[in-house]
């Protein structure tokens, strides 16, 4: 945000009227896009407190009196609360496993030359080449044959497996960039390799771990395809599935206000976390695109 080009001072008085006009146009454009982005979400949030009647017959107005009951119905009757819990049950252990496994793997690949090191590194890279769709059908039967279909463990293992390529790749780069002097000094001081890893290297890699934690958390939290295929038992639906299920059920039971409240329930935590950590989150998400 520090590099700004100030052109007005260079061009002088002659163009200042034109510059002001283009300045107004620019600000208008930016403001319009902001409205396009924010308004639908704002509309959803205030509509989630309306009655079905109000939603249907006066879509623009604010709720006459806030219907908190919509949220209760979404949370309890439509099981959004259960879906939240299911998502946490899958995503949090997955995340912990991804962080520790990718850190260990990347550390070894970055720091220890041994025959096959490059091969294993490229094997992990290869996983990023293919679209998940290609693996989908064999994966479904594999998980089924292992009796892991409709289990949390099964989905956790699959999430971890599919997150490893990028995480290993990113952390390998990160460990390579750390200075090796500390490592050597610790060994001379009599630390063993495990102590070096857990007490020295892991804390040093914290910034990298935060980036891949954000990246993977959001990827898994919003994942839809894998649970749709591997978690078909409605009791164990994850949040994204539960919401899609609710929408498609809407044809039979008309609880629009409950559905609005469900989307709001899903949006609000993301929004709060984002407002608090927005800088880090933007960095963590775009990190995936800068791998090239």
């Amino acid at each position: 945000m520090t590099t700004t080009v100030k052109s007005s001072s260079v061009t002088g008085n002659q163009q200042s009227a034109g510059a002001r006009l283009s300045g107004i146009a620019i600000n208008l454009f930016l403001a319009i896009w902001a409205v396009i982005v924010i308004f639908p979400m704002g509309w959803l949030l205030y509509s989630s407190l309306k009655t079905d009647q109000e939603i249907f017959f006066s879509p623009w107005t604010l709720p006459a009196s806030p219907q908190w009951d919509n949220f209760v119905r979404a949370w309890q009757d439509a099981h959004i609360g259960d879906y939240f819990l299911n998502s946490f049950i899958v995503v949090l252990p997955s995340l912990a496993l991804i962080l520790i496994l990718s850190a260990m793997t990347a550390y070894v690949l970055a720091r220890f030359p041994f025959p096959g090191n490059r091969f294993i590194f490229y094997l992990f890279l290869a996983g990023m080449l293919f679209p998940v769709f290609m693996a989908l059908i064999p994966l479904f039967f594999l998980v089924k044959d292992l009796h892991l279909l409709n289990t949390f463990q099964g989905l956790i293992l699959v999430y971890v497996a599919f997150s490893l390529p990028f995480s290993v790749f990113f952390m390998t780069g990160f460990f390579k960039s750390l200075p090796s002097e500390l490592h050597e000094a610790a060994i001379i001081d009599g630390a063993n390799q495990y102590q070096v890893f857990f007490k020295i290297m892991l804390p040093l890699a914290q910034a990298g771990l935060v980036s891949i934690a954000i990246f993977n958390f959001l990827g898994m939290w919003n994942q839809y395809l894998l649970p749709v295929v591997l978690m078909t038992d409605a009791k164990r639906y994850l949040l994204t599935q539960g919401l899609a299920f609710m929408l498609h059920q809407q044809y039979y039971k008309n609880d629009w206000s409950g559905l609005f409240a469900a989307v709001a329930l899903i949006m609000i935590p993301t929004l709060i976390v984002y407002v608090v950590f927005q800088g880090q989150i933007q960095k963590g998400i775009t990190v995936g695109a800068l791998k090239g």
Binding site: L101, V108, V168
Partner: peptide, 21 residues
């Protein structure tokens, strides 16, 4: 160090990613 650090992730990765592909 190398073997215990590599085996778990390789195993998961080979089973759930490489084999299906």
């Amino acid at each position: 160090l190398i073997i215990p650090f590599l085996i778990p992730s390789l195993l998961i990765y080979l089973t759930f990613v490489i084999y299906p592909y």
